[in-house]
Design a protein around this nucleic acid. Structure first.
Length: 647
RNA sequence: GCCGGUGUAGCUCAGUUGGCCAGAGCAGCUGAUUUGUAAUCAGCUGGUCGGGGGUUCGAAUCCCUCCACCGGCUCCA
């Protein structure tokens, strides 16, 4: 007999070899029907896999992430089976479950799969699912596994097997498809009731651009048709929040082929929005002791040779521009840090001066591969809210923490609740990608890890995500359709101070090396605005909204009064305009709603006689009549509250 | 950069197997209407069908090429 501990800590005694499915049946038939897989001592197993020793058991259904993962992983197998039947001879790479669904990488040989093939594959998947195919788990020796896939002619699986240890290799068979797989899988494919293959894309084998590109098909499945419909509807809704669409509709920014791809043009409303973000951060930074600096848009190539950026990115940059007579070469500035180092070097520093914090909204230009450009989130010219903090080693943690405070303040002011804090460290397997001594790297990495712990940040750690000169703490936010973007970043750097020979005089009257912290709370204004637009679906918080109120006269008779109201609002620092078209009030309201203007002020006979305005709030409706003074107080209170400043 | 897809007016889209001057709605302009909480009516303007080349008696429709954009991959100082 073995002891099975359930999540509520009750312990059941069972025969050795019992399965999660059998245990579920004893609890209830309904549960047994819904069970997808089971967590056994923290590992996800097939519900039908025998348990031979004491275990903690959690039964997983569609309501558990682990259950969804199992179902989607099985769906990948189901799709592979369908594809193999429809297109015999294709070879398979990997086919995992992902956050929302699954994919499979396929080598289709000479054939090219297109969107229209997806429909056929979906149909076949549904047919196969209805057969209620069971997954059979087979332990297999390494030589046998190699023999099987050699005979099948699938070199990708052979490569995968060669990296595995003999004795730990399993195959899963379902229907006509057999795959190298560690599982787990659904009890049978009948649970998969709704299938949608979402898109088709190229993907390099093992993520290596030097290797063959396979065809990747992304899909998602559900246990109920209704859930699929809801998911597709949700995707449609998300697309409406896309900053590229809203940016056009709300006249925030545009691109021009004549100007060049990846070079955003900020329209007046977008420029105003961006300026407000800059003003806000300048105010916060002034309080935090930052000093403004300004540097040019180009820099001598030698500057970047000293910083190390030339070696790392010189070939992947815009070509240098040269002076016509002397032939001196200059790069468009791809980052601000080397310039700021030279500002630090402009005069000698005492330890008493530190930390010194130089801040600049610095516009930089980077050559991004054409296929990488993406709206405002990935562009070739952008403005960083950059600053570099030069400090003594024992000041690093405090400075780092005060930067975190600024980032949290901004995220709070803009209601960014869902972000991921990521500690980006070196990849220990590729030391050639990084500059600087191991000792300095370890110091820098340790500082970041300790700060995260001391601040109680729930951070994930990613190896290989560090900058080439130092580790980072990055703040990631998702866009409307779930893509993750890095916004804020804080980086500890021991390297540039050495390369630029930065020094300060310590209390011992000796020269010492400062440490540099690179930081950008927004990251880039372009990307930040993009994510902000998607986050609020274009309904900006009042303090950022390009137009805060629109005055809607009932008819031309009230134009004079409308102008009086406008003047009052302007004097009260409220951004407003008048819709003086000869349209009906309902039309003016509709247009103002579509433009997402926060407040509509309706003025007619009643309002004029009582010197009031009738307020309608965007998305909410009529709030009733108020005096102008009351409205101004209302607005200014809301603006200050949202920005996190004292009223 | 790579794989696949798309490209018709400022925007959203129609344009049958290549065939008469390329269409609609919205926006814009002009006029009428002077309006009470999400679209008043009428008229008009606007496109070398992404650029270039080719096939053809004839190309928005077929082919080649370049560009841009979209979905991924790779990359992201």
């Amino acid at each position: 007999m073995i002891n099975i501990t359930l999540p509520d800590n009750t312990v059941q005694q069972h025969e050795s070899g019992i399965t999660a499915m059998e245990i579920a049946k004893k609890i209830s038939e309904g549960l047994a029907r819904n069970i997808i897989s089971a967590e056994v001592n923290g590992e996800i197993w097939d519900a039908t896999r025998p348990i031979n020793k004491d275990a903690r058991l959690k039964l997983l259904t569609w309501n558990d992430d682990g259950g969804k993962a199992t179902m989607w992983h099985s769906s990948a197998h189901l799709m592979a089976e369908a594809i193999e039947q429809l297109f015999p001879g294709v070879k398979f790479g990997i086919g995992p479950d992902i956050e929302n669904g699954f994919y499979y990488d396929i080598d289709t040989g000479d054939r090219t799969l297109t969107e229209s093939d997806l429909v056929d594959i979906e149909k076949r998947m549904i047919d196969l699912a209805r057969e209620k195919q069971q997954f059979e788990r087979v332990d297999i020796s390494k030589p046998e596994a190699l023999k099987y896939f050699t005979e099948k002619g699938d070199e990708y699986k052979i490569e995968l097997i060669n990296d595995l240890t003999d004795g730990e290799i399993t195959l899963y068979k379902s229907g006509t498809f057999t795959d190298l797989c560690r599982g787990p899988h659904v009890p049978d494919t009948g649970m998969i009731k709704a299938v949608k293959l979402l898109n088709i894309a190229g993907a390099y084998w093992r993520g290596d651009e030097k290797r063959k590109q396979l065809t990747r098909i992304y899909g998602i499945t559900f246990p109920k048709k209704k859930e699929l419909d809801e998911y597709l509807l949700m995707l449609e809704e998300a697309k409406k929040r896309d900053h590229r669409k809203l940016g056009k509709e709300l006249e925030l920014f545009t691109f021009s082929q004549k100007v060049g791809s990846g070079l955003p043009l900020w329209l007046p409303k977008g420029a105003q929005l961006r300026e407000r973000l800059e003003q806000y951060l300048k105010r916060v930074q002034k309080e935090a002791g930052y000093l403004p600096v300004i540097t040019p848009h180009i820099g001598n190539v030698n500057l970047y040779k000293i910083s190390g950026h030339y070696d790392k990115y010189g070939q992947d940059s815009f070509r240098p521009i040269t002076t016509p007579v002397e032939g001196e070469a200059f790069f468009l500035k791809p980052m601000n840090c080397p310039h700021h180092c030279e500002i630090f070097n402009a005069k000698p520093h005492s330890y008493k001066d530190l930390p010194i914090r130089y801040a600049e909204f610095g516009t930089v230009y980077r050559y991004e591969q054409s296929g990488e450009l993406h709206g405002l989130t990935r562009v070739r010219g952008f403005t960083q809210d950059d600053a570099h903090i030069f400090c003594m080693p024992d000041q690093i943690k405090d400075e780092f923490k005060s930067v975190i405070k600024i980032i949290m303040r901004i995220f709070k002011a803009l209601d960014f609740k869902e972000f991921v804090t990521q500690i980006s460290l070196r990849d220990p397997n590729t030391p050639e990608k990084y500059i600087g001594s191991d000792e300095n790297w370890e110091k820098a990495e340790r500082a970041i890890i300790e700060v995260a712990e001391e601040e109680g940040l729930d951070a994930i750690t990613e190896y290989g995500e560090a900058a080439f000169y130092g580790p980072k703490m990055d703040f990631m936010v998702k866009d409307a359709i779930g893509r993750k973007w890095q916004l804020g970043t804080i980086q500890v750097d021991y390297n540039l101070p050495e390369r630029f020979d930065l020094t300060y005089t310590g209390s011992d009257n000796e020269k010492h090396r400062p440490v540099m912290i690179h930081r950008a709370p927004f990251g880039s204004l372009e990307r930040f605005v993009a994510v902000l637009v998607e986050h609020c679906a274009g309904n900006f918080p009042l303090w950022l909204s390009p137009d805060q109120a629109i005055i809607l006269p009932i008819s031309e008779k009230y134009q004079k009064f409308a102008e009086k109201v406008l003047q009052f609002l302007n004097n009260s620092d409220i951004r407003a305009l008048i819709d003086d078209r000869g349209e009906k009030i309902s039309r003016k309201i509709r247009d103002a709603e579509v433009k997402k203007i926060p407040y509509m002020l309706i003025v007619g006979e009643k309002e004029e006689s009582e010197n009031q305005v009738s307020i309608r709030k965007h998305g909410e409706g009529d709030l009733g009549s108020f005096s102008l003074e009351e409205f101004a107080v209302l607005i200014n209170k809301e603006v200050n509250r949202l920005q996190g400043f004292e009223v």
